[in-house]
Simulated scan of single mutants.
Amino acid sequence: MQGTFQMDTDTATLCCYDLASLEHRLQDTPDWWSIPDDELEEVNAGHCLFLNLGEDGTYEVHWKVQAAVLEPESEADQANIYYFQVPSGKVYLGSADDVSGGELEPDELSQGIFLQLNPGNYACTVFKKENQISVTIQPSDQGKNKVQDLIRL
């Protein structure tokens, strides 16, 4: 499964998460994740990947989902790999402008796409060059992260 979509963002951030993973944030303020500690907490728990792009604008996102389990060969291979959990299978990949909060969730009008994945843990490999973003999602044994700082592409 693969494709391409364009997204506009006013938050300079791409996100990837299973909607069930952030149900506990639905009643929170819409910009709850603008608090760095809250963002980092959810990333490390594997609930949501917030991928900071550096600037607002329009981006072309090339995505693919692979069936093979990710097995990085070295630490260098892991530099752009982040992990997340998929409890329900309904995954949103798109602008973080639409992340769950303020009693709202992403929908068909959001700046992103919905992927139907099997429940489990996933790895997300991400690369950015100018306004082009490449995202590869594949099953993983790992579902949590141990990052010390916010993810910046």
Rank of each mutant, 00 (worst) to 15 (best):
Q6M: 05
Q6S: 10
D8M: 08
T9H: 11
D10T: 03
T11S: 13
T11R: 12
T11F: 01
T11A: 11
T11H: 09
A12Y: 12
T13I: 02
T13N: 04
L14F: 09
L14S: 08
C16F: 09
Y17T: 10
Y17E: 11
D18L: 07
D18K: 05
D18F: 13
D18Y: 11
D18Q: 03
L19V: 14
A20R: 06
A20W: 04
A20I: 04
L22F: 06
L22W: 10
L22Y: 07
E23C: 00
E23G: 04
H24S: 14
H24M: 09
R25Y: 14
L26K: 15
L26N: 14
Q27A: 15
Q27K: 15
D28M: 08
D28K: 08
T29H: 06
P30V: 01
P30W: 03
P30G: 03
W32I: 11
W33S: 14
W33F: 15
W33Q: 06
S34W: 03
D37L: 05
D38S: 02
E39N: 08
E41M: 14
E41W: 04
E42I: 00
V43L: 08
N44V: 14
N44R: 06
A45P: 04
G46R: 08
G46E: 08
G46W: 09
G46V: 02
H47K: 15
H47E: 15
H47F: 10
C48F: 07
L49N: 09
L49Y: 05
F50C: 05
F50G: 01
F50P: 03
L51D: 04
L53V: 03
E55P: 01
E55W: 02
D56N: 15
T58E: 13
Y59Q: 09
Y59K: 07
V61T: 03
V61Q: 02
W63P: 06
K64E: 10
V65T: 10
Q66W: 01
Q66A: 10
A67E: 15
A67I: 00
A67D: 15
V69C: 09
L70P: 01
E71F: 03
P72M: 09
P72T: 10
P72G: 13
P72F: 11
P72I: 07
S74Q: 05
S74D: 08
S74T: 14
E75G: 15
A76Y: 07
A76F: 12
D77A: 10
Q78V: 01
Q78A: 07
Q78I: 05
A79V: 14
I81P: 12
I81L: 13
Y82N: 03
Y83G: 01
Y83D: 13
Y83N: 11
Y83I: 05
F84E: 07
F84W: 11
Q85P: 07
Q85D: 04
Q85I: 12
V86E: 06
P87D: 00
S88I: 06
G89N: 06
K90D: 08
K90V: 05
V91W: 10
V91L: 12
Y92H: 12
G94C: 03
G94R: 04
G94L: 01
S95P: 12
S95C: 02
A96I: 09
D97G: 07
D98R: 02
D98H: 08
V99I: 12
V99Q: 00
V99C: 09
S100A: 12
G101D: 12
G101H: 12
E103D: 13
E105M: 10
E105A: 06
P106F: 02
P106V: 05
D107N: 03
D107A: 02
D107W: 00
E108S: 00
